[in-house]
Amino acid sequence: MLGYVRLELIRTMRDGGYVIFGIVMPVVMYLLFTNLGLAPGDRHDAAIYTMVSMAAYGALGSAFNNGTGIAEDRAAGWLRQLRLTPLAPAQVVAGKVLIGAVSVVPSIAAVLLSGVLVNHVTLAPQQWLAIVALLWAGTVPFSLLGLGNGYRLSGQTAAMANLATMLTLSIVGGLWVPVQNFPSWLKVIAEWTPSNNYAGLSWRIAFGDPPTIHQIVLLLGWMLVFAVYAVYGYRRAGRRA
């Protein structure tokens, strides 16, 4: 299975869509937002807040990109080819989840590093630890949603669906423009999105507060919904593959 993970990571790193949406764009947007004074609050606070937003945005991009890969693999007959090797189906699925978990790391790391190196963000070591851990673990619901789309939809449709979902969740979830600037009706919607609560965990840590129960419960709830969706998609795909 490690051979499978290695092969898929090689493919991911050579994927222009992954590099652009998952790594380059979040870093560029982060540096633009913070240095053009587009982010709210004083400069250092804005640098911290937007750093979390853009790391979350990049992680979302990578997580959904992994799901899109599944649809491409199916279209290319790769899932069937894998079924004809000694790899067990469970190993393939577990491998794909592992690949998703690894592929979000560069996205998160790139933005956090730009925060430290370019915008001179300073946080306590335990804050860094908690933010990295939460940004990483919190991608699971989005990976599941992306995989569900990848299993359920055909190649092009899955790519479009994942891109649209990723952008909608990013924008409505307040990753591009802070929720504080939203009209009140949109703010209500934003607070129920998985993306807002995902970034919210780390926003609170970054400004010295513990995450709220509301955020944790909501994110776990979405994770459950998306897990059911992914399993449903996988079963459907299994019947056709």
Partner: peptide, 14 residues
């Protein structure tokens, strides 16, 4: 067993 289906099985970027 080793098998070659009628089509597919090649993935991009490797």
């Amino acid at each position: 067993v080793g098998a070659m289906p009628q089509e597919g099985g090649l993935i991009p970027r490797v």
